[in-house]
Amino acid sequence: MDFGESIYNLIPRPVDVPEKQALYHSQHVGKVDPKNFVLGVSKRERGTFGAPNGQYRPDPKKFLTRHSKEPLLPDPAPVTQPKVNKKASVPKRTERPVMGLVSTKNFITANAVENILSVPRKVNNEPFFYTKKADYGRIPSYLTKNKAKIQAEKTAIEQYLASKAEEDAYGNGTVRKMSEGERVHLLSHLKSKWEEVNSVYQKMTFTLDTPAKQKRKENYEQTLSQIEKDIQKLEKGNIFIQEDL
């Protein structure tokens, strides 16, 4: 930093002398015999100065022809599945249609005579009464089979649920099947409960301007949803109850 005139400037400053680097010495021999020296020809034909004069001249016999760079496809293989000619062949020159045939038959009159002389078909005009059928008033056999199959499936499901309930029962309680009277009584109570909650829910105001109203509306909706789920379960039947001892 230069502060201008100062007494320290009278002190001589050391001069940095740069270190002299070593001279470059080539590894090749400096002396070459002029008789044996040819500029690049002995090692490479072209060297770095290009081809000799006249080598870049184009050959008039070598020029780019049409389709010369396209790939050559192999010869087609013989047909393994000969083509079946579905159309009729063209008639030969020697094949000629039969001409000159003339008929004296009057097809209109012959057709009328044949229809007049033909025996009419027998038509049953008697009315059909379904009450005279052999299986009238009886249950069709396919309905009986379907009902028996459905009843067998219901019985198998009930047996499976009963065995499952017995397996799930543990030491401090028992599992029993709810009776039909209890199921109907509980179902009627749930329906009446749903009507009471729904009537209160329908009487609510449309404006939910306070958090208390919003919370009350959510509680009513959750209660109605839970009651509907319980009603659906009870309507299916086969309800098992676990009682604590």
Rank of each mutant, 00 (worst) to 15 (best):
N9F: 01
L73R: 05
T65F: 13
G4I: 00
A212T: 14
G171H: 12
Y160R: 15
T48R: 09
G50N: 07
E235N: 04
V119L: 05
D75G: 12
E243I: 09
T210D: 05
Y130V: 14
N53W: 14
K236Q: 10
Y8P: 07
V15H: 02
T48N: 10
G171W: 14
I231E: 03
E166Q: 14
E218N: 07
G30S: 07
V102F: 01
K92L: 15
P52S: 02
P120R: 02
R121A: 14
P78I: 07
E235Q: 07
L143A: 13
L23A: 11
S6T: 08
G50Y: 06
R96W: 05
R96L: 15
Q226P: 05
K35L: 13
G30A: 03
E114I: 04
T104Q: 03
V197K: 02
A148I: 10
V184P: 03
E19Q: 07
K154Y: 13
P140Q: 03
F206K: 14
K87L: 12
I150V: 09
K69C: 03
I11L: 11
S6L: 02
Y220V: 03
K193I: 06
T94S: 09
F128D: 14
K86P: 06
R93M: 13
D16L: 08
L23F: 06
A88T: 06
K215F: 09
E114L: 03
S89Y: 06
L208R: 10
L161K: 02
S68I: 11
G181K: 06
S199W: 09
T174S: 13
G173W: 13
D135I: 06
D135M: 15
E19I: 04
L23Q: 07
A112L: 06
D2Q: 07
K147F: 11
V15Y: 02
N146E: 15
P71K: 06
L72P: 00
N125D: 12
K132C: 04
K83C: 08
E166S: 14
I241C: 09
G4K: 01
F206N: 15
L224F: 00
Y142S: 11
R138A: 12
A165V: 05
D244I: 12
P71M: 01
N238K: 11
P82E: 10
L101R: 10
H189T: 10
F49L: 15
K236C: 04
I157A: 14
P34C: 03
D2P: 00
K236Y: 00
T155S: 12
K105M: 04
H185F: 13
P14S: 11
V17R: 11
V98F: 00
D75Y: 05
M178I: 08
I139H: 03
T174L: 10
T94E: 08
